[in-house]
Design a protein around this nucleic acid. Sequence first.
DNA 1: ATAGTGTTTCGATGATTTTCTAATCATTCA
DNA 2: TGAATGATTAGAAAATCATCGAAACACTAT
Lengths: 176, 176
Amino acid sequence: MKEKLELLKLLADETRLDILNILLKEDSYVEKIACELSLTPATICYHLKKMEAAGVVNCSRSQFYMIYSLNREIFDKPLYELIKKDGETVDAEEKYKKGVLSGFFKYGRLTQIPTQRKKREIVLREIAKDFKAGEKYAEVEVNEIIHKYHEDHCTIRREMIAFGIMEREKEVYWLK
Amino acid sequence: MKEKLELLKLLADETRLDILNILLKEDSYVEKIACELSLTPATICYHLKKMEAAGVVNCSRSQFYMIYSLNREIFDKPLYELIKKDGETVDAEEKYKKGVLSGFFKYGRLTQIPTQRKKREIVLREIAKDFKAGEKYAEVEVNEIIHKYHEDHCTIRREMIAFGIMEREKEVYWLK
DNA sequence: ATAGTGTTTCGATGATTTTCTAATCATTCA
DNA sequence: TGAATGATTAGAAAATCATCGAAACACTAT
């Protein structure tokens, strides 16, 4: 899950930990925190706004001040909860595709063009993900992108057309 | 505590989370993980070594392979444990100094040079922390560093000598 | 209104960190 | 021993991110 990574990134900063520790003792405001940590209000504000967006702190205005306070529930979870990826619900079809892909790709490059038609299509569609739908590409551009995956861009480009994954008109190529 | 921040920094990276999730399922080795994540072995190695240094994973050789495994105990703690600064044991003397410093510094700059001798010394010693012990400084360099704290670097430089915090010989200055 | 105080945004800078390629190292097996 | 395979290191390029000063903004009180 994306938010988990975001939360971890937020916590993995010395200044933000300092701020959280201040707020752990009592609610406070920008200027005061800035003074305690010997940083400028601009910097503190930057961090607080970031944490507010992630729901780690809340803020409310009181006279001159923006009073920031902790959202303590967040910290109850064990670490385990934050690192574990949830919901890997993969059906059989998905699983088969993954198997084919991990068999033919190595470090993101295609090691060999599959001879089996079905597997070849899976591999080609994977490469096709690197093209944007609706965009027009010159032949050089197509080659360039394919080249990231395999030396023989000619064959792959031709097969893309053959499988109806891409279309061409004159020297222009596009997806679908 | 320093290690807590280090641990959080380690966890706050997408690639490392991916690696941890693979290891959560079963022990594995560099090349295999690299293939699964479409990254080079060099990159995976870089991350694993980092995590090993922090005690998050362990490794042992088996034939060709370096088998990496999780150190699962680490993940039991609640988040709260990782953000809370522990052991703020400050004695009276420390407290007094902190009071003086927070009175005269604002955002890391000296707002005014204290007239009281005792307070002046505290403030000067704080600024002195920005110099490295054993290093020699030219006068320009000394001024430059002091200038980060206060306009009047001449007075402060002179006082540094007067209090025996720094010493000078000709145009060279050094700490203590 | 307008002066004063605290907050936020913007643009620039510098530091840190991830990733890669290429080269080197370590281990196994013929 | 040397060929093969996997792991690690070094160095460089690229991306991300914290920080600051200055300017703009919001609220309060005279």
